[in-house]
Simulated scan of single mutants.
Amino acid sequence: MASCAFVSKLSQVTGRFCSKASCPTRTTVRALTCTATRAQLHKVEGTSALAGKVDRFGGVTVNLADAGLPADISEGAFSRLLQDCLVQWKAEGKVAVWLRVPISLSRCAAAASTHGFTFHHAKHDHAVLALWMGRGESRLPGFATHQVGVAGAVVDESTGKVLVVQDRNKTKNAWKFPGGLSDPGENIGATAVREVFEETGVRSEFRSLLSIRQQHNHPGAFGISDMYIICRLSPLTYDINFCTQECLRCEWLDLARLTTTKDTTPITSRIAKLLLHGLEQGFDKIDLTMEELPAVYSGMFYQLYHRQLLKS
């Protein structure tokens, strides 16, 4: 703070006599200003200012929000700091660097780009940049290659009817199963149950997975691939109170009728035939049931969907 006050006072004095950049006194002021900036940065630089977490693949992840950088750090100051760290990481044999940049330090992304960093992904209040330092072409994984849509086919086994809706914003009013996009960290069965309730007001429970559709370059998903999963659900309630913002119509429709009507989509018609077969021959003939198993990572679990083997 003392050096800054001195520089400010000196600027006021010399400003009366010097007007050219070549003025020796003005040069002294610039030198003192740079010295003060370096001194401020030196407080947070050290050898661990950009210390990150090393992963099992030989990469380093640095979260700039936790790096202790000055809130007003300039692009130039960050660029010099990053350059020193890159030299160190390279000498240590690190193959990649991931920079998590909060939106408040977006200027650091511009500085990182001069060292070869490129955007990997962005979410809400931060962006992640990546730099491959290993041999050959980059082997870093991509991000957000797919979105997952989930629909729930709620079958009333006592009546042979299934719950269907017509979307309000479609050019063709075709019957389909209610559904939507799965949230991050949400199991597909939970997505199906949630989406059915949000669109129709009917509560249900997950029974099985019925089908998966894969589509690439999806126009409604920013050109990424789309996975569309249909689950079989059993109703817990039957009264319809559908969302008028999303749905034009909602009904319990006879499964046999859904297999023959032209007012539906090809995938809905095929799944209706599958459900009708299950209704007549037993759902064990069509179900891919879910089993939760412990993962190799301690304390974590995964969901496995498969046909059950007949017990002898």
Rank of each mutant, 00 (worst) to 15 (best):
R249C: 04
V155S: 09
V7D: 02
M290A: 14
Y302V: 10
E292M: 10
D72Y: 00
F283Y: 15
L163A: 11
L304Y: 07
K43E: 03
H126D: 02
M1E: 11
N241W: 00
C108S: 13
A51I: 11
K176A: 12
R207T: 10
L279P: 05
A51S: 12
H306F: 09
N173M: 12
R194K: 12
S19H: 14
L304A: 05
R307A: 14
A96E: 05
E137I: 05
W252V: 09
L304K: 09
R135Q: 12
V162D: 03
A49K: 09
I212D: 03
A295M: 05
A51N: 08
L105S: 00
D226Y: 10
T114L: 07
Q40E: 10
V148E: 05
G189A: 09
R194Y: 02
E251G: 00
G149K: 04
Q303M: 02
S3L: 15
G59N: 10
V196Q: 08
C243F: 01
K172F: 10
V148R: 03
L210H: 09
S104Q: 14
L32I: 11
H216Y: 13
G160V: 13
D254P: 07
N173Y: 06
R270C: 06
R135P: 07
E291Y: 02
D263E: 14
G189D: 09
V101P: 01
T35F: 12
P266M: 04
D125Q: 11
V148P: 00
I240C: 01
Y297E: 14
S204N: 03
H42P: 00
D84L: 06
P178G: 09
I267S: 10
I212F: 02
I188A: 01
G223C: 11
L275C: 15
A127L: 06
L99Q: 06
V164A: 04
